[in-house]
Nucleic acid binder design. Structure first.
Length: 406
RNA sequence: GGGGGUGUACUCAAGCAGUCAACGAGGGCAGACUGUAAAUCUGCUGGCCUUGUGCCUACGUAGGUGCAAAUCCUACCGCCCCCA
């Protein structure tokens, strides 16, 4: 068994566990720093490890388009290519169907027929592709060169096989129209059909001994927005296919309130097999994560700590919750105190707020690097606290103090 | 001394009679960001307030011509270039 639950919280659905992969074990609940293109922006792989990251997330779509999965396979797989010998998750490219099509070109999706959709690049947009989503998969056609790339459920499995990640995800489909029942229903059903195809391809490659990482796991993804019956339907259909674990997807893809996010989790998790690994895709804020742990989720990935670090936002831990601050703010221009005196990251132990403020104001890349480290250590430290609390049966205290106190 | 050019909001820089409190960029101020098209994006950036097809003050200074001037004319002041 690749996932083992070690301890359960008595007052919530939280659990402490361990995920065993071909590249080592991961203690859960855990957070996956996002390294979409094979790098967690601005930091080295050895630094990630030093800060407590046990597993990272990379992206199938991005690595496929550049530098290409075949090159990475020739390099000996993603682990060797990027020199990270710990576990790697690869997202399937499903999110890009959403983010490169629907989300950014919502104004004029040209409906081809039924559920198939085409998104035309707008002349004034920087976005370089036309996107077509149909039953077979998604094609991205370059707006300038006309080059076409087609990502299908099978292709996604094949790419991830070439990458040799430890945990692969099936290609899924969801949209931003969380209120349109029929549309959501169609994406749930297509996600199931795609999951079956992905599973089949996965088994085929495995039995043929063609997988670069024979120990690779495959996770199914549950969709259904906030419709109770669709979430339940999705869980049942995806579970019936039988995966090594499950992801709850489509819960925080743009503007959802925390209530909506938690509701979507509550509608999904109770129907999942108890002893299987559960990843919550794309979530979230520190509070989101703690609340999701309480609802039975084992792992998380989110761009918040890294992206917001690049935009100057720093997270700070307090006994009764956390706060954030914008290091670019004028009030820090001459603040010679450390960013967070309780933090042990390099920036907090060696530099002042005034210096960080100066670095950001002058667009110096060191600022980005220092805040990325700071925020990642905050997130990874939070997960460590959660695990320790679960171990010491003190999780309720963490739950009580999970809020942003800004 | 002669000739030419130029002076615009914090900075650079458009505008060359009305649609100009004045394009754009930078800077400044604030906000956003949830499976990364993201070191990105958005808003504001003369003053006042009853926040409006509102009032006032503004395009080197002082006058002038126009119904109307940042835009035209005159003088003056500053800066730049060329010739002597």
């Amino acid at each position: 068994m690749e996932f083992q639950i070690l301890k359960k919280d008595q007052a919530s659905k939280a659990r402490k566990g361990i995920l065993k992969t071909a590249h080592g074990e991961v203690r859960t609940p855990c957070f996956l720093p996002i390294g979409t293109k094979g790098t967690v922006k601005s930091v080295r792989q050895d630094e990630l490890r030093e800060w407590g990251a046990e597993i990272i997330l990379a992206n199938t779509y991005h690595l496929w388009t550049q530098p290409g999965d075949e090159l990475i396979a020739r390099a000996g797989g993603l682990h060797k290519f990027i020199n990270w010998d710990g576990p790697i998750f690869t997202d399937s490219g499903g999110f890009q169907i959403f983010s490169l099509g629907e989300k950014l070109n919502k104004k004029e999706p040209l409906v081809a027929s039924g559920h198939d959709r085409i998104y035309k690049r707008q002349p004034e947009e920087k976005f370089p592709f036309n996107v077509r989503v149909d039953e077979n998969g998604v094609s991205f056609q370059s707006g300038s060169s006309g080059d076409k790339m087609k990502l299908t459920p099978e292709k996604s499995v094949e790419i991830q096989s070439n990458l040799g990640s430890d945990v692969s995800l099936v290609l899924d489909e969801f949209t931003g129209d969380l209120d349109d029942y029929e549309k959501v229903k169609q994406t749930v059903e297509r996600t199931t059909r795609w999951a079956k195809r992905a599973k089949e391809k996965f088994e085929k490659l495995k039995s043929a001994g063609k997988s670069l990482n024979p120990g690779q796991l495959q996770l199914g993804i549950v969709q259904g927005a906030n419709y109770a019956d669709l979430r339940q339907k999705s869980v049942q259909e995806i579970s019936a296919i039988g995966f090594d674990g499950y992801c709850v997807g489509g819960v925080a893809v743009g503007g959802e309130t925390q209530e909506k996010i938690l509701e979507a989790i509550e509608l999904s998790v109770p129907h999942l097999e108890e002893d299987k690994f559960r990843h919550l895709l794309g979530v979230g804020t520190p509070e989101n994560i703690i609340q999701a742990v309480a609802r039975g989720c084992d792992s998380f990935d989110c761009v918040i700590p890294t992206r917001e670090a690049r935009h100057g936002k720093a997270y700070m831990a307090h006994d009764d919750g956390y706060t954030t601050l914008n290091i670019l703010a004028g009030e820090f221009k001459e603040d010679l105190s450390p960013l967070d005196p309780t933090c042990s990251c390099y920036g907090c132990t060696h530099h002042t707020r005034a210096y960080l403020n100066h670095l950001f104001r002058s667009s110096e890349i060191l600022g980005i690097r220092l805040l990325t480290e700071h925020n990642l250590r905050f997130y990874l430290g939070l997960m460590e606290k959660i695990r320790r609390a679960l171990n010491e049966e003190d999780f309720q205290k963490i739950l009580k103090n999970c809020k942003n106190r800004n």
